[in-house]
Write a protein that binds this DNA or RNA. Structure first.
Ligand SMILES: [Zn+2]
Ligand SMILES: [Zn+2]
Ligand SMILES: [Zn+2]
Ligand SMILES: [Zn+2]
Lengths: 136, 136
DNA sequence: GAGTTTTATGTAATAATATAACGCGGTCTC
DNA sequence: GAGACCGCGTTATATTATTACATAAAACTC
């Protein structure tokens, strides 16, 4: 049993998670809504409610700097305490990683300040290696 | 001359920066607009355009997880390469700091991945020491 | 200094993102 | 079966941000 164990997904949660997994990258809530209209979705709230739960379960991450959501890159999910994301501004690719050294530094700072951490957002913006290669 | 030298502020930029400085904490663009209506502001774009410049000059930071803006805590500004923010979810206070160890870790990761960094977002959410003391 | 480009501005309209409020139906407990 | 809880559907609304177009001020060129 892990820290992020979660119950079976409901129908809507499965559909939303499926959209994100299939996309293989970030989607906005409204993009998900459009993808799921043929499955009966009609209103943003159906997407947001499912996303809330999926984020709670650790299966989906919210990218604050994009106002978008992405399926967790770790197969079983719940494998990591906190995740960081590198977002390529050329191709839109998102790489999820666990920045151990950074997390240690930030946790140390919080401890020294008597700041109790609930969650962290770490997002890098720039250009990925593949896009730099392609550039003339 | 620093990396973030900037020209004299225009009237609108000064008003927006003044609002943020006086507030001593984060404000949304629309909150700034309401504060500046008596100074003649009528439309969101007047705020957003000023904020764009102030962020470019390094005098204001955008808090992605709040969709809000805050005046840089460093008197002269431009003193830091990248900033991190600890946001207390109880009192709303924001503490800006420079997480050297975390920055080193993230820069190292980017170097190893051949990812060219343009900017970073580091935001901690939780409860500050003062609020924990107050709690019964 | 006239002509040109750049930058800042004003205003209206709209787009994109997110939540509030209400009611309904299922499931679980007692 | 009453009560609590959860997920769901729907409508309406709130919040955040940008597009489009016109005007004005400043900076730069010759
Ligand atoms: Zn993850
Ligand atoms: Zn790329
Ligand atoms: Zn700063
Ligand atoms: Zn606090």
């Amino acid at each position: 049993m892990t820290a992020h164990a979660h119950p079976e997904l409901t129908k809507n949660q499965s559909l939303v998670f499926g959209s994100l997994s299939d996309a293989g990258g970030p989607l906005t809530a409204y993009a998900i809504l459009d993808l799921l209209r043929e499955d009966g979705f009609r209103a943003p709230l159906q997407v947001y409610r499912a996303l809330d739960k999926l984020v709670e379960y650790g299966m989906v991450h919210r990218l604050e700097s994009l106002n978008a959501f992405v399926a967790c890159a770790h197969t079983g999910c719940s494998a990591h305490g906190a995740a960081a994301f590198a977002i390529c501004e050329q191709c839109g690719d998102v790489i999820e990683f666990t920045p151990d050294e950074a997390l240690k530094g930030l946790n140390d700072w919080a401890g020294a300040q008597d700041f109790t951490l609930a969650r962290m957002t770490i997002e890098l913006r720039g250009t990925c290696g593949a896009c730099k290669s392609k550039a003339v």
